[in-house]
């Protein structure tokens, strides 16, 4: 996804490990926002606003993924809360953002950051509506929802879930990790957990915005084979 954002010149919300900066640029930006719990994402947007380009290095950094549901929810709660903070900060003056990042950059920012937040929040509401519609067999919903909305929703339901599952299925092939392919079929569970994290994030944003929920590491028993040493040319 990141190479795609780079190619479209959309601000890249930095994240995770393996970010490399020029210290002069960091100083010019006056460092990072210590109150934002995804300060790296915020930094990526500010870099783009200052006219700097974030490049993607085609390399691999192995890190431990959150492999327990509660740990995963805590980590995603922090990420979504940070995205909310970043979104609120940078959309205070939307015209300035359009001027500094361009219309495409602004749109990409709203869809990528705002869309991530909104999808997590709206997902359970839509599923509940859908369950209600299934039970009622459309009888009570027809006057409320015009047919065009039914077609759009149907497209989103099928194309969205199908594409997301398939992308999760295809991604491990690039690495040759074919054993992960069947797990892509559980992607609906991912949506559910993300919604739990999104509502926790919303709650924390209101009552405890700067709390940093630390991710507990050293949980996974999986060991990645050591990266082969670099061969020096004779």
């Amino acid at each position: 996804m990141l190479p795609g954002l780079e190619r479209l010149k959309i601000p890249i919300p930095l994240g995770g490990t393996s970010n490399h900066f020029k210290t002069s640029v960091l100083r010019e930006l006056r460092g990072w926002d210590p109150f934002n719990v995804t300060e790296d994402a915020d930094l990526g947007i500010r870099l783009a606003q200052k006219g700097y380009r974030v490049g993607i290095v085609d390399s691999t950094t192995f890190e431990e993924a959150s492999c327990e549901a509660w740990q995963w929810i805590r980590q995603r709660t922090r990420w979504v809360k940070g995205y909310m903070q970043t979104f609120l900060v940078h959309t205070r003056r939307p015209l300035t953002m359009i001027r500094t990042t361009g219309l495409l950059g602004f749109t990409g920012f709203v869809l990528f950051i705002g869309g991530t937040i909104l999808s997590g929040i709206l997902n359970p509401i839509f599923w509940l509506l859908y369950a209600g519609w299934l039970v009622a067999i459309a009888a009570g919903f027809d006057p409320l929802f015009p047919q065009i909305l039914l077609f759009l929703s149907l497209f989103n339901l099928l194309a969205g879930n199908g594409a997301f599952t398939y992308l999760s299925m295809i991604a491990p092939i690039r690495r040759g990790w074919l054993g992960l392919i069947p797990f892509s079929l559980t992607v609906m569970g991912y949506w559910f957990l993300l919604s739990v994290a999104s509502y926790r994030a919303l709650g924390q944003l209101l009552v405890n915005p700067f709390h940093w929920e630390k991710t507990q590491h050293g949980v996974s028993r999986h060991e990645t084979p050591a990266v082969p040493p670099v061969e020096v040319a004779p």
Binding site: T165, M169, I170, I173, G176, L178, G179, I181, P182
Partner: peptide, 15 residues
């Protein structure tokens, strides 16, 4: 590849 996870590749092909 087929030797490692043949069924998984077929899943990805027919999904």
């Amino acid at each position: 590849l087929a030797a490692n996870a043949s069924a998984n590749m077929v899943i990805a092909l027919i999904f």
